[in-house]
């Protein structure tokens, strides 16, 4: 598919305009068998409500936790997940792939 029809970025805009703290997570790189392509989004609000996906549900929990920090301090960060990462024991991709996720706050 060329484009996702998920309107998750529209939801991020709606949340922000309603006064919520919002972060957008974007898959920026993938290696091996990654479940979601580069450019996939997950949007998170200050209460931990989220929409979209950056993996097949494997690392969303961790991304949401990090996103709450990003909403708190306003600093963008890049997260990496995968079998080569030691956090794989805790949160990893069961498919064996690796992904990089950029998390930024909506100002």
């Amino acid at each position: 598919m060329l484009a996702t029809d998920e309107d998750i970025l529209a939801k991020a805009e709606e949340w922000r305009k309603a006064g919520k703290g919002v972060a957008i997570a974007t898959v920026t790189e993938t290696w091996g068998s990654a479940p979601r392509p580069v450019g996939s989004h997950l949007v998170i609000d200050e209460d931990g409500l989220f929409l979209g996906s950056v993996s097949g549900g494997c690392v969303e929990g961790e991304v949401v936790t990090e996103a709450l920090d990003v909403i708190g301090d306003g600093k963008s960060r890049t997260l990496e997940f995968g079998v080569a990462d030691e956090t794989a024991w805790r949160v990893g991709l069961s498919c064996g792939g690796r992904i990089k996720v950029y998390v930024e706050k909506v100002d």
Partner: peptide
């Protein structure tokens, strides 16, 4: 991301 950029992206997609 600036909310203005996000709004502009959404407007382009809607159109």
């Amino acid at each position: 991301m600036d909310i203005a950029l996000l709004s502009a992206m959404n407007a382009e997609r809607a159109a």
